[in-house]
Simulated assay, not measured.
Amino acid sequence: MTADNPIEGQVLVLTAAKASVGGERVPELVAEARRELEPRRDELRRKYERVHEDDVREIFLAPEGFWVEVGDDMGWERREREAVARAHAEQLLRVGRREGRESEFETALEVREAVVIGT
């Protein structure tokens, strides 16, 4: 993982500990999602609310079902999809803690899904 990965290493470790997939598989899945989504950056910007942007990442809130659709397109099993969705949600919450917006983001995650891409 590079230093400019939009999903921080600690988030990947936390996700791997909670995931029902092998811990070594989580970074691979997150990287696959990144390769799939970053070329769609303009589409994400048009369709979804961007709630954060910095030098490393942009974070969007997509409708529930976003990761089901992406996972289906990628041929992922349910557990793999859930691990990627969890990594993206955990990254949003980590940013929220730093910005004093954790409560806002927790509420948003009740009805939407986080999508993190590199800038």
Score class of each variant (00 low, 15 high):
residue 47 K to R: 13
residue 88 H to V: 12
residue 29 L to H: 02
residue 10 Q to H: 12
residue 5 N to M: 05
residue 5 N to Q: 10
residue 19 A to E: 01
residue 54 D to W: 12
residue 3 A to S: 14
residue 111 V to M: 02
residue 31 A to I: 03
residue 89 A to G: 15
residue 118 G to M: 06
residue 14 L to V: 06
residue 33 A to T: 00
residue 110 E to N: 14
residue 33 A to F: 03
residue 94 R to V: 03
residue 80 E to W: 00
residue 21 V to R: 01
residue 98 R to C: 12
residue 17 A to H: 12
residue 14 L to E: 13
residue 106 E to H: 01
residue 38 E to M: 09
residue 119 T to K: 11
residue 110 E to G: 15
residue 86 R to C: 05
residue 79 R to S: 15
residue 8 E to D: 09
residue 34 R to S: 15
residue 112 R to A: 08
residue 7 I to R: 06
residue 87 A to V: 04
residue 8 E to L: 03
residue 64 E to M: 01
residue 23 G to S: 04
residue 98 R to T: 15
residue 119 T to W: 00
residue 8 E to A: 10
residue 44 L to Q: 06
residue 79 R to K: 15
residue 83 A to S: 14
residue 18 K to V: 15
residue 20 S to V: 04
residue 81 R to G: 12
residue 66 F to W: 03
residue 74 M to K: 12
residue 108 A to Y: 00
residue 31 A to E: 15
residue 118 G to E: 08
residue 15 T to K: 07
residue 64 E to N: 03
residue 20 S to M: 11
residue 45 R to I: 05
residue 51 V to Q: 05
residue 61 L to F: 07
residue 66 F to S: 06
residue 28 E to S: 08
residue 105 F to G: 00
residue 94 R to E: 09
residue 54 D to K: 08
residue 18 K to T: 14
residue 48 Y to I: 07
residue 89 A to F: 02
residue 10 Q to P: 03
residue 24 E to H: 11
residue 114 A to C: 11
residue 71 G to I: 01
residue 118 G to H: 03
residue 55 D to F: 12
residue 119 T to E: 11
residue 1 M to T: 15
residue 95 V to G: 10
residue 16 A to Q: 02
residue 111 V to E: 12
residue 105 F to M: 06
residue 89 A to M: 08
residue 104 E to Y: 11
residue 91 Q to C: 08
residue 35 R to K: 14
residue 67 W to H: 13
residue 8 E to H: 08
residue 81 R to A: 10
residue 23 G to Y: 10
residue 34 R to D: 13
residue 69 E to R: 01
residue 76 W to I: 04
residue 101 R to D: 04
residue 70 V to C: 13
residue 47 K to V: 02
residue 110 E to Y: 08
residue 82 E to M: 07
residue 58 E to F: 02
residue 9 G to P: 05
residue 43 E to L: 04
residue 112 R to K: 05
residue 51 V to I: 15
residue 94 R to S: 05
residue 20 S to I: 03
residue 67 W to N: 09
residue 86 R to H: 09
residue 21 V to K: 04
residue 101 R to G: 02
residue 114 A to Q: 04
residue 71 G to L: 01
residue 30 V to P: 04
residue 87 A to L: 04
residue 19 A to I: 03
residue 80 E to L: 08
residue 84 V to G: 02
residue 4 D to Y: 05
residue 99 E to H: 04
residue 58 E to L: 08
residue 65 G to K: 01
residue 86 R to N: 12
residue 81 R to C: 13
residue 24 E to Y: 08
residue 53 E to S: 02
residue 56 V to T: 10
residue 40 R to W: 10
residue 15 T to S: 11
residue 71 G to V: 03
residue 91 Q to H: 08
residue 9 G to K: 12
residue 34 R to A: 15
residue 118 G to W: 01
residue 67 W to S: 08
residue 87 A to H: 00
residue 91 Q to I: 09
residue 72 D to V: 06
residue 54 D to M: 07
residue 66 F to P: 01
residue 37 L to Y: 09
residue 58 E to V: 09
residue 32 E to R: 13
residue 29 L to T: 13
residue 67 W to E: 10
residue 116 V to R: 01
residue 17 A to Q: 14
residue 76 W to M: 02
residue 110 E to H: 14
residue 7 I to Y: 04
residue 60 F to D: 05
residue 110 E to L: 10
residue 49 E to S: 10
residue 61 L to P: 00
residue 14 L to H: 13
residue 5 N to H: 07
residue 39 P to G: 10
residue 57 R to F: 11
residue 55 D to I: 11
residue 29 L to R: 04
residue 6 P to L: 08
residue 41 R to L: 06
residue 91 Q to Y: 09
